[in-house]
């Protein structure tokens, strides 16, 4: 059993807006082990990105974290309490040192007026103990590694001169050059075409295996998760509704929402099968449903219970857990 790298405990994130407090993440807990790829799936507005940004304290100024929320990064020499990190060296560790992030839109993430090379060198100088020449060599080497042809020339180019797939590769090269312990990849292939997506995912898998880092992979695409992740957490309206290994989630989903997501996906092996949408629309984050957050759209709703009682997390064994009243032991035995 490998060591735990990151523990997120009871994370609650709220935003103060003109319309009132919006709960983006609600009592989320998960654990990430070294070398593990955890997929975080959910639709837009489910709180995946906010969860990820909390790990690097990147949420906007109107954010409040819950009083008993805790994020602990088990760094080599000592543990860092992320949410109360103040010291310079702790901030350096969670932002780019031990944790690196790949964003969805690489064009928006690179500074447009600084060359790719200068941006790569700058972060290496900040985080490492190398001199400028070494940093330059390592950067060019990393660009080579991610399959960018003519890396020396690319090093001196600007982000707009590269194609979308190339930019995302450069982004990966940059994120990995500091050798982080944890890589957060927020929809890394969503803006890319399928053929390029296949290339980038392969590259990421190879590099992850080689560097042995842990990855938090955020995506709305269950296919990407199935092909990449070890474990999956499914989010809905700020809550993790189900966690398990990829095979458990894809083959034997227990939460009605996970089942609904899987049924809504077009299956290439069965072209005639009808598509079944999840009924209804995602409620506004300002009007979070009482009880189970999914009860307004749930086909398996238990009247009088799901709309009042907040479900506990039920452990189904083998690392599979679900947050649904129908799966709670008292319900299973009485049924």
């Amino acid at each position: 059993m490998s060591r735990s790298l990151l523990s997120v405990d009871n994370l609650t994130v709220k935003f103060k807006t003109d319309e009132g407090m919006v709960t983006a993440v609600d009592a989320v807990s998960f654990e990430l082990k070294q070398g593990e790829i955890l997929g975080l799936v959910g639709e837009s507005g489910s709180g995946k990105s906010v969860t990820a940004k909390s790990l690097m304290l990147l949420n906007a100024g109107n954010t409040t974290y819950g009083g008993d929320s805790k994020i602990v990064l088990h760094n080599e020499d000592r543990d860092i309490d992320v949410l109360s990190a103040k010291e310079q060296r702790d901030m350096m560790a969670i932002r780019g040192g031990a944790i690196s992030m790949i964003f969805q839109e690489p064009m928006a993430s690179f500074a447009p007026a600084i060359t790719i090379g200068d941006q790569m060198v700058e972060q290496l100088l900040l985080h490492g103990s190398m001199n400028k020449r070494e940093a330059r060599e390592l950067s060019i080497d990393m660009l080579n590694r991610v399959g960018i042809s003519d890396a020396k020339a690319r090093f001196n180019q600007y982000a707009f001169e590269l194609s979308g797939g190339m930019r995302q590769r450069a982004m990966i090269a940059m994120a990995l050059s500091t050798q982080p312990k944890l890589l957060i990849a927020d929809e890394p292939t969503t803006a890319l075409d399928v053929t390029i997506q296949a290339q980038v995912l392969d590259l990421m898998k190879d590099l992850i295996a080689e560097f042995g880092m842990a990855v938090l992979l955020i995506t709305h695409d269950l296919g990407v998760i199935a092909q990449t992740a070890d474990r999956v957490a499914v989010m809905y309206l700020g809550k993790i509704v189900e966690t398990g290994s990829v095979r458990q989630i894809i083959r034997a989903p227990k939460h009605p929402y996970t089942k609904g997501l899987l049924k809504a996906l077009p299956d290439l092996d069965d072209l005639g099968a009808p598509l079944t949408p999840v009924a209804g629309d995602i409620p506004s984050p300002l009007e979070r449903p009482a009880g189970c957050v999914f009860h307004t759209r749930c086909p398996e709703i238990i009247a009088g219970r799901c709309n009042t009682i907040i479900p506990e997390i039920t452990d189904l064994g083998d690392g599979h857990s679900v947050s649904c009243l129908a799966a709670e032991p008292s319900m299973v035995t009485s049924a």
């Binding site: 194609s163 797939g165 190339m166 075409d193 399928v194 053929t195 390029i196 997506q197 296949a198 290339q199 995912l201 392969d202 695409d221 269950l222 296919g223 990407v224 199935a226 092909q227 990449t228 990829v246 095979r247 894809i250 899987l262 996906l265 299956d267 290439l268």
Partner: peptide
């Protein structure tokens, strides 16, 4: 064929027969 095989399959154990395309359009 390459477009078809580039779609990430929902089955984690699906056989990977993908024809990998080099380069970009």
């Amino acid at each position: 064929k390459t477009l078809l095989s580039a779609i990430p399959h929902l089955d984690p154990d699906a056989e990977k027969t993908a024809i990998k395309l080099e380069g970009e359009i």
